[in-house]
Design a protein around this nucleic acid. Sequence first.
DNA 1: TATGAATGAGCGTTCATTCAT
DNA 2: TATGAATGAACGCTCATTCAT
Lengths: 197, 197, 197, 197
Amino acid sequence: MVAASEVFSKKGVEAATMAEIAATAGISPGAIYRYFPGKEELARCCMEEGGEAVDSEWMTAPEPGRPGMPFNELARKTVAALDEPMQRAATTLYLERVLQAVFADDDGVTMEEFNEQRQHICAGIAARLRFEQAEGRLAAELDCDALAGMLYSFYIGARMIKLVAPESDVNAQVEQIITLFAAATTRKAVAAGALAH
Amino acid sequence: MVAASEVFSKKGVEAATMAEIAATAGISPGAIYRYFPGKEELARCCMEEGGEAVDSEWMTAPEPGRPGMPFNELARKTVAALDEPMQRAATTLYLERVLQAVFADDDGVTMEEFNEQRQHICAGIAARLRFEQAEGRLAAELDCDALAGMLYSFYIGARMIKLVAPESDVNAQVEQIITLFAAATTRKAVAAGALAH
Amino acid sequence: MVAASEVFSKKGVEAATMAEIAATAGISPGAIYRYFPGKEELARCCMEEGGEAVDSEWMTAPEPGRPGMPFNELARKTVAALDEPMQRAATTLYLERVLQAVFADDDGVTMEEFNEQRQHICAGIAARLRFEQAEGRLAAELDCDALAGMLYSFYIGARMIKLVAPESDVNAQVEQIITLFAAATTRKAVAAGALAH
Amino acid sequence: MVAASEVFSKKGVEAATMAEIAATAGISPGAIYRYFPGKEELARCCMEEGGEAVDSEWMTAPEPGRPGMPFNELARKTVAALDEPMQRAATTLYLERVLQAVFADDDGVTMEEFNEQRQHICAGIAARLRFEQAEGRLAAELDCDALAGMLYSFYIGARMIKLVAPESDVNAQVEQIITLFAAATTRKAVAAGALAH
DNA sequence: TATGAATGAGCGTTCATTCAT
DNA sequence: TATGAATGAACGCTCATTCAT
């Protein structure tokens, strides 16, 4: 619901009231419950609305015959999407949900959701990195899983920074990563060339 | 108030009640209002306490005569500190502060604090990276400011991930960065060596 | 409405929702209001349906020429009927009706219905007891009206207990009553016999 | 709370609102929660307030050296207590709770409470009846457990009838029971006397 | 006539805040 | 000054009822 996202991103999930969301949407409070079982689920839906497309693209690993979007291109697209206006709402929602999970007493049940999503995406990133390695575009000695975890952390961090400093140039940052990856690759080629002499 | 910080860290600002804070502090609920005008202000005071021991080391740029801790070592130490138990409380408090700033109606006044801190740290990181470049340990064509922003985002993201997945191996991730940096450096040396032939 | 009775019996009047009644009846919630002005009236109609098959037998007093079923037999049959599965629904509906009457603001108008029914049944029981006395099967010094009231209370109580403890052996309980009645009778005969000496 | 009992007995637990109870008690709604965890517990406390003294007296079985109150006296006292004004509230509360338990989906957890209380009281009644048998004041061939169940049902039923017909003479009914018991006893003595001739 | 989405008042409960002691 | 019982507004949510279709 666009009205819910609007109120959630302006006030936060905790501070937003169902009455205000309903008023913003131009309906009555009770009508919300026809479509969502409660405030919690409404917030979850709002959160999943943003970035789901990009996330799912990372989760589908490339294969030799079906390489999909090259790593560099997908990485650029992912961070470029952070400039979309709705990202702000998605990120604050995500942040609130993380805190809620951290403070929840449900023995980590809620946290498992985040971990599963993270693990899936990290696995997807790692698969793509291994694909790059197989294609000779990434240094073979790099640990793709650790690298994927590092990239995911960077992505999460960048989203948070965007919240506080929307002008931060994440695109330039991802270019540095791409440059580093390229440098780590060509080194071997150059070294091989050097040894050939 | 140390008692307030304790409760805020454990339950979150929203979930913490003045009654519990008072009980933890060993005083009555009413007594809190002698020292703080309300819960909100109490939370703000607790958040401003957030010390930055490691952060400050990054802020002091190295100089030729006083190099301080090498980049790699400081980077390793910084992420190693994420395994300390008190980090969890510090991170949750930090995240809550971010949310508070995002939702605050004070026209970004609170947000400025975050940005100043971030900019200082990023500047410190960039200075150290430039020092590494000057020493020939980092490829000259890398944009140190962008790289610093990327490292800061990674750090912030890693702290969040640690909250949800304490078992995540941030140390391995930072090693990948160090490896990438080293690879990007040696390439030039190797290339230079190759060209020498 | 049979659907309404079904839902009321299963959930109770308060817990039953118009939506569920409508769904059970296979119509829309709004359609109910074509036939009943509201939930309250619907409940009242369902409650008035409560048939009293066994009850009516007690109401018809025996006469010398037309003794009908003997007291003991009818008493046994009455409590044996409490084991029928449909009794549960009938009893809950009865109890809810009692509560409704107690809480109603209609100055006891609703309560009069209960009292009339109770008085008729008690009168029937008393008539049968008097018949037993006349036949010499029940001690003459017993107050049949008080005894009838006691038996009716026992019956109502037993129905309630069956609700909470379906395994309670009401048949054994009624046998005790029959035994007591018999003992109270034979005493006189024995005493008479003794006096005859 | 006397105010709660007043409102509960006038409106019923379901229909009574915490706001009305608070207003009747002359306090604010929130103040109720300082003394009771919620409406449910408040209702339970109100219910237990009535008749607890009598109940507990039945539960303590008599012993040869410590016979306690004779059965007849205690029975008379128990039904005489039904004329106390607060009994009405206690009975309606009890009735509502039974219905609540019947309709609850908690797999009979709530019902167990009623059954335990019932079983304790029935056991107490049976123990007293056995004591009477041992003392020769009650026919030995009577089944004390079944008789106790019958007396308990009568008591529960009488309470309900009092709700609908406060003028019903329960005292006269209990006198019939006492008469029946006495008759069943003396029969044997008389019979023994008769046989002696 | 029947529908079923929408209404909106009202519920139990919480807890930051106050103030008589 | 400190207490802690009391306040009371506000919340998420329900559901009997309505009414445009």
